[in-house]
C-alpha cells in the first residue's frame, strides 16, 4: 500500500502537482491511503485528483481510502457523496489496519 499525507491547502494552483506526485508514488496493485489530517482546504480540482486515483486503483482491484479528513475538506467529501463512495476512516491507523487485514485474509 501507499500512504500519502496531504497537508495545507489544495486548489487549482497545485492540484496538478499533487496528481503527478500520486502517479509517481503509486505502484501497480497498491491500495492508496490518503492521510488528510493536516489538510485544511480542498477544492473540486483536488477532489478530482483523489477520484482519478480511485479510478486508476479500481482498474487493478485496489481502492483509495480516505483517512482523518477534518473541517472544510470533510464537508466537501460529504456534500459530494464521496465519503459514501470511497472507504473513509476516522484515523490513518485504522485505514492501514483495515487494508492490512484485507490483504492477509
Amino acid at each position: 500500500m501507499s500512504v500519502i499525507a496531504i497537508a495545507g491547502e489544495v486548489d487549482k494552483t497545485n492540484s496538478a502537482e499533487l496528481a503527478d506526485y500520486v502517479e509517481r508514488i503509486r505502484r501497480p496493485r497498491d491500495h492508496v491511503i490518503f492521510d488528510l489530517a493536516e489538510l485544511t482546504f480542498l477544492d473540486s480540482s483536488g477532489l478530482h485528483v483523489l477520484l482519478s486515483c480511485a479510478r486508476t486503483c479500481a482498474d487493478d482491484d485496489a481502492d483509495v481510502h480516505l483517512a482523518a479528513a477534518q473541517g472544510s475538506p470533510a464537508r466537501l467529501l460529504h456534500v459530494t457523496g464521496v465519503d459514501v463512495r470511497l472507504p473513509t476512516y476516522v484515523t490513518t491507523e485504522h485505514a492501514i489496519a483495515t487494508v492490512l487485514a484485507t490483504r492477509t485474509s
Partner: peptide, 18 residues
C-alpha cells in the same frame, strides 16, 4: 452535475449545493 467517478469537474455543482 456531481460526477463521483471523477471524470469531470464539478465546481459549478458544488457552488449551487453550498
Amino acid at each position: 452535475r456531481v460526477d463521483p467517478t471523477g471524470a469531470h469537474g464539478f465546481g459549478l455543482w458544488v457552488i449551487q449545493r453550498l
